[in-house]
Design a protein around this nucleic acid. Structure first.
Lengths: 348, 348
DNA sequence: TGAGCCAATAAAATCGTTTCCAACGCTATG
DNA sequence: CATAGCGTTGGAAACGATTTTATTGGCTCA
């Protein structure tokens, strides 16, 4: 109970109290089997007495690592990102790692800055969802990265470990399901083509039509952003415009928020007036209208897999080739889809 | 472009290249006004050439800080926590701090462990929502804490800076609103009394009845957990049991998920069959049934305020008394409340 | 011309740990 | 009895920066 208000006890204090050298104290902590039991006992008693705990800063300095992984993300408020985080954290904690979470808001400048600042001894590795796949500032930094990294659901023109989702197949399956129900005017709202999920979802969407030999309604593909606002605007446009779709795919969980806002505002009833499919079974998706049919995936698994790739990269030889893991999706049926209502113009 | 694959350049390399001493390089970085312009130029050129950036580990070691704040949280998937995080991060980043996020799952053992491991040079301060307000392990650790900390929406038997929400007033206002609509059988589902929000919400609930001289239906207070499962179970019990309430308050945003699941399952229509009030305007709350009436608060402000308290504590004198900030709530009306339907038993 | 002063810089100490190496004591062996 | 070998330990050198102290050189002014 000394040192109560002064500075913390150091390994030197422990050495002094237990009457051994600092080296021996250090070995008592890190390799107790090399220390004589009697000595170990003395050291442990001193540690107990002083309430000593090694200073992490000094350990980081000397060991040249930090046991910390940087997690760069667009928006932690997005439940998908939060679940990936939890999956990664659970996996990494088992190996003694911590996570530094950095929220960028998806802005390229912030992302570049985060990459910069997380290097040079702040973290031992990086997990990230970089939104600016083509931004030169980000690319340049990623190219010079001095720590291992794993890219989440993104694609850049560099050899990088990555964990992706097979959005295309998922979308193809979902749209196939809607086509089989009889829908032809199917709308898609999703991210812009500058990020992988946007490109992949559009690909799956058009492929579903192609495979069935049905012409794809290009005017119903709205690909620009994953924001709720965009979802709201485009859904309103769909609902109020001519050639209104009979089914809609919300290609993103935040988009769904906007889509539902518009649906509520217009008094549209799901699935009577409109069939709806969304991506990822968030709370909102699973509750609304008794459950919205969703292109689902095992989100924590993304984090776990990314963590494993990263750990292997940290511990393994540096010259391994880049690895890409693609995780599957599955269609979870809810109560949000029905055959299209026979409408005047269609019947005529 | 040297050092490409070898180790990073150190301050010593910069000194060698620019022909000055390491001290001068350090001053060029941290106090350029004390260095002759010509020298500064040489140093900067060398830094540029070598791509030097100071090693954060060494800086932490020498400066005896880390510019990192630990953020201990129950569950980052909870949008409330994520928003608090974002608020705190925005504020702290301006002062150069980073956030270490640790997810505990609300388990006392994990919380105690997190506190332990975040000390001793890993972080300069702590923001936390400790769920185990009474757990002796946690209390013991918090008592011996060597870094400043701010408690979020919790109360412990120690002198600690804290940011809270005036849940009691918010609840009182909401229940008053329901009473004024004519409801008498009002149900409350919320956290157990072992955490502050649980206690406060129950206090506000009973107070609203007391102030109006209406007897409080003690059988309708279900106080145990903030989980969706608990919300689901208790709502089912309410809906299927005798003396079914005409209005329900979901005292927690995760609880609401379970409440709505039960409501959907039972085919209850809001607000025709049941009036509903929730806590916090999450996406789900603002979308469902055209918007659920909510006891709202400025969540990011909680994070910002906590960050400010922490920064002042870090930079200020150590012997300041503990400060507690209580933030207000406001009732945001949605379309989820209506006067109670006149039912057979009531009319008789 | 040289003492005194100031600004700029070099040199050295420091932070707290880990790790390397030398030295020590003991046992076993030739 | 000398010595090789082993297990254990002490002492010191890292790690890469910051900070303190000492030194240098140039300048002013008597």
């Amino acid at each position: 109970m000394r040192q109560e208000l002064g500075r913390s006890a150091t390994i030197r204090d422990v050495a002094a109290v237990s009457g051994v050298s600092v080296g021996t104290v250090s070995r008592s902590l890190n390799a107790p089997e090399t220390v004589r039991p009697a000595t170990l006992e003395k050291v442990r008693a001193a540690i107990q007495e002083l309430g000593f705990q090694p200073d992490a800063r000094a350990q980081n300095m000397r060991r040249r690592n930090t046991l910390t992984i940087g997690f760069i993300v667009n928006d932690i408020l997005n439940p998908i990102h939060a679940m990936v985080f939890k999956g990664a954290e659970a996996e990494l904690r088992e190996s003694g790692y911590w996570l530094h979470l950095v929220n960028t808001g998806g802005k390229a400048r912030q992302e570049a800055e985060a990459i910069d600042l997380l290097q040079h001894g702040r973290v031992d590795g990086l997990l990230m969802t970089i939104n600016s796949e083509q931004d030169p500032r980000c690319l340049e930094r990623l190219e010079k990265l001095r720590v291992p990294s794993v890219l989440l659901d993104r694609e850049i023109a560099l050899e990088t470990d990555a964990v992706r989702t097979d959005h295309a197949s998922g979308m193809e399956q979902a749209v196939g399901y809607l086509l089989d129900l009889g829908h032809r005017r199917i709308g898609l709202i999703t991210a812009g083509t500058e990020i992988l999920p946007g490109r992949e979802r559009i690909r799956g969407f058009t492929q579903a039509f192609a495979k069935r030999g049905v012409p794809c309604p290009a005017d119903l593909i709205r690909s620009q952003s994953l924001s709720a606002d965009f979802g709201f605007r485009e859904t309103l446009d769909f609902l109020r415009g001519p050639g209104r779709p009979t089914a809609l795919v919300a290609g993103g969980n935040q988009l769904l928020v906007g889509v539902l806002r518009a649906i509520e505002q217009q008094g549209v009833v799901i699935p009577r007036d409109l069939s709806l499919v969304t991506c990822d079974r968030t709370d909102l998706a699973s509750v609304y209208a008794g459950g919205i049919t969703a292109i689902d995936r095992d989100i924590p698994e993304i984090g776990r897999t990314a963590a494993q790739l990263l750990l292997e990269r940290i511990n393994g030889p540096a010259d391994w080739p880049a690895r890409r893991v693609v995780l599957p999706t599955r269609l979870v049926l809810g109560r949000s889809c029905a055959p299209p209502a026979v409408r005047a113009e269609t019947a005529a």
